[in-house]
């Protein structure tokens, strides 16, 4: 409780510290109350995360609403393995793209998280000493 409960928490030494034991009116939601992460890392991580989401969700919308509905009829003029392309997208293509999008997301995020030191790899504590407690190693 040495930290201000003000959420805008005045930066100390240019580094904002999250103290989850401040949230005493709430039931604890994860077991890392003493965990501290530097604000810079967290903020740039979140920005990178939002960028990834924007790119992938645009792709998702393009595939499902675009190829699946809006340009579906236009795509029919092309042929893929005996299918009119637009028809193929509605029956199989969109779904295959969806699977690809999720796996791209997984790999991309993993990379970003390692770069920002906020990942949940086993033993990753060593990589970023600011992270004081275990990461998912609780019983």
């Amino acid at each position: 409780m040495n930290h201000s409960t003000n959420s805008k928490g005045q930066p100390k030494d240019g580094c904002r510290v999250y103290h989850h034991d401040d949230a005493e009116n709430l039931p604890p939601h994860s077991h890392h109350d003493k965990e501290t992460l530097s604000e810079v890392n967290v903020q740039s991580y979140w920005r990178a995360n939002v960028k990834v989401l924007t790119v992938l969700l645009s792709l998702w919308a393009l595939v499902s609403f675009g190829c699946g509905v809006l340009f579906s009829d236009w795509l029919d003029q092309f042929n893929l393995g005996g299918f009119p392309l637009g028809f193929w997208f509605t029956q199989q293509g969109t779904m295959l793209c969806f699977v690809a999008i999720i796996f791209i997301y997984h790999i991309w995020m993993k990379k970003i998280e390692r770069a920002h030191g906020v990942d949940d790899d086993e033993g990753s504590i060593d990589n970023h000493p600011t992270n004081q407690t275990g990461t998912g190693a609780q019983p």
Binding site: V42, V118, P139
Partner: peptide, 24 residues
């Protein structure tokens, strides 16, 4: 929302430190 809730949101946005799901 109160400060605690805003802190909680900060917390769930970071993957590191997820404990085993538990009951209260």
């Amino acid at each position: 929302p109160p400060a605690q809730v805003q802190d909680m949101i900060d917390d769930i946005r970071i993957p590191a430190g997820a404990g085993v799901a538990h009951e209260h």
